[in-house]
Amino acid sequence: MPRLNLYCLPYSGASAMVYSRWRRGLPDWLEVRPVELPGRGVRLGEPLQTDMHALARQLAGELAPRLEQPYALFGHSLGALLAFEIAHALRERGCPAPLALFASGTAAPTRREDYQDYAQPKSDEELVAELRELQGTPEEVLANEELMSLTLPILRADFLMCGRYQYRPRPRLELPLHVLGGKEDKSSMAQLLAWQEETATGFSLDMLAGGHFFIHEHESKVLRILKANLEVGWRRHLRHARGGDAGLSRVGA
């Protein structure tokens, strides 16, 4: 049975494991493929990266040999910006375009004014305060010195990558761009809507209850949005690949 690969990019300080639960909530035709970033998880021995464009080119090179099957990109926060840059890097390589790009929980590439204070390294105390404000890390974890000694260097590098990001004007992506936002998150509606400037094909915006980590607070709804948007493109792909409607009945729950 053919499958659509969903490559998922993690948020600041996180590893690919944050998406491991998603496999249980999505249909068989949609394969979750978490992308691990250097310096964490199975890539712990690799140096951390603070250059968004360099990392996007590196990851695009790693993904390129696997793109014979149709795919989509998803990223939350840092991961959304990184997924966007990977889509551009893949296009520059002449790779097949993703069926869709999902940008979750962050302002559009042209509206990064709220992230300028991330351009300088933050102290451990500032990083912990930021984690506490985002309300995605339990207090017992914040109080665990051993865990924090592993997490804070990763978070510091990821914040620098966000703060030092420089937008590069390029032709719009020829793919549907779906944005998800939290109603209590800091990104404004104008900052989220500005993502539509990056696509020449189609755009949608879904606002969910919750703060920055709405993807965990409302996981089932996020997965329903992903499935609903990808099913359209997946059906179209199967029609084109099989020269008709054969196999469409397989796309379902």
Rank of each mutant, 00 (worst) to 15 (best):
E113V: 03
A100Y: 02
L131A: 01
T106A: 01
F102P: 01
P171C: 15
E198W: 03
Q69I: 09
T106K: 04
S77C: 13
M1T: 15
L180A: 10
Q191H: 10
E62Q: 14
D206T: 06
D206C: 04
P171S: 15
G210R: 01
P70H: 11
P169R: 12
K122Y: 03
R112C: 02
G39P: 09
L248A: 03
Q196M: 03
H88F: 15
E125M: 08
D206G: 03
P65M: 08
R23D: 13
E146T: 13
L134S: 04
L205E: 12
C8I: 08
A83C: 05
R242L: 12
E31N: 11
L99I: 03
L142Y: 01
L81F: 00
A87S: 06
S249V: 02
R93V: 05
R235I: 00
E197K: 13
A89H: 02
A87C: 01
R93L: 07
R164L: 08
T110Y: 03
R33I: 12
L223S: 07
G211F: 01
Y165P: 10
R93T: 05
E125P: 08
S204L: 05
G25R: 09
R111V: 03
L55I: 04
E62H: 11
V251D: 05
E174I: 14
L134D: 02
A72M: 14
P34N: 10
T201Y: 00
D124I: 06
A14R: 11
L44P: 10
E46D: 15
L9H: 12
L152Y: 14
R33V: 13
M189E: 12
P47S: 13
L78I: 07
K122L: 06
P65G: 07
G211M: 04
S187A: 15
E113I: 01
A108H: 02
R239F: 11
T201L: 08
Q116F: 13
R132N: 01
R239N: 09
A241H: 09
